[in-house]
Amino acid sequence: MLNVQDLHVSVGCSEILRGLDLAVNAGEVHAIMGPNGSGKSTLAHVLAGRPGYDVTQGRVTYRDRDLLSLAPEERAREGVFLAFQYPVEVPGVSNVYFLKAALNAIRKHRGEPELDAMDFLALVKEKSGLVEIEEALTRRAVNEGFSGGEKKRNEIFQMAVLDPRLAILDETDSGLDIDALRTVARGVNQLRTAERAMIVVTHYQRLLEYIVPDFVHVLVDGRIALSGGKDLALDLETRGYGWLDPGPNAVAEAP
């Protein structure tokens, strides 16, 4: 489904990703781990098309298309979804209005009829149960005044409604207490299907106890230093990231 080859990405003058390779197939869950500053979030944002990131080398194909040539909204309509680490507050726009506009843009692109208000509300009701999001929250302005946990649940709720093919979860566990983490993970697990792929970006192994990945990749200095099965995460938990070789192209950090 997704094929990342030799991806180099710069932000401003500094190169963040330095030759990253990654292949993700339908039905798989890939965890991307790594120390702070290794490029995990950059990878998530570049895949979703955030402006301000310069791809200087390499290519990304998604369902046999050049993903990097697509605008962010085109990627979303093709089934790419990014759950934000810091979901954005949009005062003045209600959650349901926002989601209906998004879903209908995606449906239109797929050649499906737009959902009317009744059908949409039925869908909202069904999906809001998945992440235990109160219905009142869906009528409030997008993320405005939401707690950290509510914001993360809202991201997964959006994912459930928009039904993506490739979901990228950027540090979805950050700032969550254990109960909120369980709720979010339960929602994500219910969305695991044979057709859907997921990339779970996280700093901690904790999340992977609840969302068990098929593959674990360790990102160090902008490239994947090590890949393995789910047990690799446990290894990292006990040994930390320090022992990993950043690789021959690594550049020493300034002190």
């Binding site: 301000g52 909204e73 979901p87 954005v88 949009v90 989601l99 843009a105 692109h109």
Partner: peptide
Amino acid sequence: DPVSLFYLRSRGIDESA
């Protein structure tokens, strides 16, 4: 705000909308 704009676009809403 460019981050808000990206957030909406990342959900499938086109830039001008």
